[in-house]
Amino acid sequence: MFEIRIHSRGGQGGVTAARLLAMASFLDKKHATAAPFYGAERRGAPVVSFVRIDDQQIKIYSQIRSPNLIIVLDGSIMDSVDVLQGIQPGGTVLINSPHPVDLPNVNVLTIDLTGIALSVNLVVAGSPILNTPVLGALAKMGVITRESAEAAIRGMFTDERNVQAAEAAFKELIV
């Protein structure tokens, strides 16, 4: 089973990212579950969501304790939350950041999702949309296929800029 934890802020689309990722995995003919952890969050508060991907039916509902992959949609969360908590040995962290980030004992990948969203003008109510471009990055990492990523995005959004942003992220991420 491949387990993913996504850190974001309320309103940034972490929950939608989890759902898109589950949808894409499902299109890849795998079993997947996506679950947000709901606290009493408000716009701007740190939130986490979880995705499990497996070849068999997933019967586990409890939270992911040792993820294989951690996604950080908002780097500023790292000041207040230990995003690496429980990471599998050899696990990977994907961080939305324009600059390289150095973290001990884990594989770190960075990609400027905010910059990508802004470059295609994927902005809603003043905030760049991060949940669709991150799918492109995950496709590049091989977590999901590129086709399924696009299909999942098109299934949820009609605005083609979402797909463009995912494409841009796919091209930009160096793995």
Binding site: A40, E41, R42, R43, G44, A45
Partner: peptide, 11 residues
């Protein structure tokens, strides 16, 4: 202030 700055209200 009787409502401190630590509320969890939206900005």
């Amino acid at each position: 202030e009787y409502l401190e700055k630590c509320t969890t209200a939206c900005a």
